[in-house]
């Protein structure tokens, strides 16, 4: 075996990438359609489906909290991983800087989501 091999920490980011990629592939298109097109324009779905009391109740429910966190955080971890790799692929080797911006924003967004979701109570 080759000497001086260093174990890669990629599994952490790769797992988040895989989970986010799968979640966005399964739920992404329908979510965009529901939250960005159907409900805001009262098209097919009831226009008050995202009213404040309903969304508050959803975000105070355990399952609702989990779903919101999974969608926001995992979508962003997925995107961060792909964008970071794409930058490298098109020849932008920004190194630590690009890594911090990509994964850093996913991390900050995750923290913000957790704080807000906890703040909304149960």
């Amino acid at each position: 075996m080759k000497p001086g091999l260093k174990r890669s920490n990629a599994p952490i980011f790769w797992s988040l990438f895989g989970a986010g990629g799968m979640l966005s592939a399964l739920f992404g298109p329908a979510l965009v359609f529901i939250t960005g097109i159907a409900v805001p324009f009262g098209f097919i779905l009831p226009a008050d489906a995202m009213s404040y009391p309903k969304m508050l109740a959803f975000a105070q429910n355990f399952i609702g909290k989990g779903f919101i966190l999974a969608v926001i955080a995992l979508f962003l971890w997925f995107a961060a991983h792909r964008i970071f790799h794409s930058l490298h692929e098109v020849g932008i080797h920004a190194g630590v800087g690009a890594k911090l911006i990509c994964y850093g924003s996913a991390f900050v967004a995750t923290v913000i989501s957790v704080v807000v979701l906890l703040g909304l109570g149960f």
Partner: peptide, 9 residues
């Protein structure tokens, strides 16, 4: 995907 997640955030 990132853009949409940002809107949701």
């Amino acid at each position: 995907v990132a853009g949409y997640a940002f809107v949701l955030l």
